[in-house]
Amino acid sequence: MADTDLTKVEDWLDGLMLRLEPSARRKLAMKVGQSLRRSNAQRIAANKEPDGKAMAPRRPRTGPDGKPVSRKRMFRRLRLARNMRIKATPDSVELDFGGGNAQRIAEVHHDGRTDRIGRTRDGRTIRARYEARRLLGFGNDDMETVLEAVTRSLAPD
């Protein structure tokens, strides 16, 4: 979506938001945050970045016998609702990874940092550099998701 289209939608939403009380604006922001959390979780489950490209694949791993080890999808627990937190105020909505271990893992993968992955039998720390995989972001379909959430919440029951 072009920036001019995004600006038009922002202006339209600003006009709607000014007519609402702060508590109603916060509820609306929470609904928008929930829809964005859902779309980001689906995107993470599909191993897609917000721009639609595939995430960098996992490095191949071999077991002690030298055979490849089969592994499940990436970020299975990270995409759970309990780890993706919504911070809604009357003026904004923010989606992040709550804190603690989930936040650390998300930051390492999002930015492509080096992290500790374990220890050897003699106590040395094993570190690995991770590919950058954008976990949270505003994708092409998210504008439609936001508009649907706004119209659903503002529609009369």
Rank of each mutant, 00 (worst) to 15 (best):
A88V: 07
D157V: 15
R82N: 06
G52D: 01
T62I: 12
T145A: 13
K27F: 07
R127P: 00
L135D: 06
A81F: 06
A41W: 01
V9T: 11
K48G: 02
L136I: 01
Y130W: 03
E21W: 11
L154S: 00
A24Q: 12
D96M: 04
K27M: 12
M1N: 15
T125Y: 02
W12E: 14
G137C: 08
T89V: 09
L20S: 00
M55S: 07
R77Y: 04
P50Q: 01
W12A: 15
P50H: 08
M30P: 03
G118P: 04
G99W: 12
D5G: 15
L147H: 09
V93L: 11
N40V: 07
R79Y: 01
G99K: 08
K53L: 11
A2R: 14
R43G: 04
L147A: 06
I86P: 13
N83V: 02
G63W: 05
L16S: 00
R59P: 08
L78H: 12
S153K: 10
S92Q: 14
Y130G: 01
M143D: 08
S70P: 08
A2K: 12
R73Q: 11
M143S: 09
L80T: 07
P68K: 06
I105A: 03
H110M: 04
S92V: 07
R104Y: 10
P64E: 09
K31N: 12
N101Y: 14
D3K: 15
A56P: 00
L135F: 05
D122H: 11
V146S: 05
A29M: 15
V146E: 03
T125W: 11
K31R: 10
